[in-house]
Every structure is written in C-alpha cells, then in structure tokens.
Amino acid sequence: MEDKFFKLEIVTPLKIIYQDQVKHIRLPGVDGYFGIMAGHAPFVTSLAIGEIKVDLANDTKYFATSRGIVEVLPHTTTILVETAEDASQIDIERAIYAKERAHRRMTEHVPGTDIDRAKDAWFRAVNRLKIARKLKEPESK
C-alpha cells in the first residue's frame, strides 16, 4: 500500500518548531502514548510531558515536549505545546543542571518554594535527558 502523508505542525508560543508532510506520529497523551496516521478521525486531546516521534518518508525525528494540546483534522495535525526541542539539539549539560536544580528545590523545603513547579521542572529535565541520550546511543535492535 502506498504511504499516505498528512501535514504536521508543531507550534510553541515562541515559534513554529516544525512543519512538514509526515507519515506517522506518536504523541505523549495524558493516558499514554498514541499514534496518528493520515485519515484519523478528527479529535482534540491534551498532551503530557514526553516525546514526539515523527516518521517521515525515510527518516525519523524526535522532539522533547511538555504539556500542550493536539488537534487532528483530516489533512492537518496541529500540535500546540509550551516547549518542543529537536532531540538532536538538546543541550545535555543544561538539562542535567536543570534536573539538579529542580531536585534541590524539591528536597530543600525552603519556605515559599512551589513544589509542584519544581516537580514539573524535574520531569521536563528528565524527559529531555532521556530523549537526548537515546539519540546519542541508538537503540540496538
């Protein structure tokens, strides 16, 4: 069967991160990962912190993302997220630093610290690290 493509847009408040014709995407839904191909029924759902996997004709791209929403329409899928980083461009050192800082915030119990925000930051940092490292050491199959 011939591959069908659909238009994907990943947009953050700062800029359009990615825009292309793609074959298949896998998204971090609130209740777990799910996939979308061309011709999917129209729907809207929230996204959690996680990884966006984009399958092109003969390439695969990964993005680290945090919370947002996706709208699937017959020919276009629009992903609106707070942040999305191309896995190949993640700064590992910065991610490690962010993770440690978030960890300190969570454990030190300084009055006035927003624990939920610290937790969120920690999850985002861990997510970025996981995705960046996966790309550096390709999965052995």
């Binding site: 839904g29 609130v30 209740d31 029924a41 129209p42 729907f43 809207v44 759902t45 929230s46 929403i69 329409l73 017959p74 020919h75």
Partner: peptide
C-alpha cells in the same frame, strides 16, 4: 467551522470536552 466540515460529524474529545475547555 473548519474548512472540511464533512469529517467533523464525530469530533472526539479526550478525555472529555469540559476538561479540555477548562485548560484551554
């Protein structure tokens, strides 16, 4: 109403419309 509205008959919300509207 989106351009290709024929497909819009069953626009699905997950988890449900209210949760999504509340955040959005």
């Amino acid at each position: 109403i989106p351009e290709d509205e024929t497909f819009m008959a069953d626009y699905i919300f997950e988890p449900d419309a209210i949760t999504i509207l509340d955040t959005l």
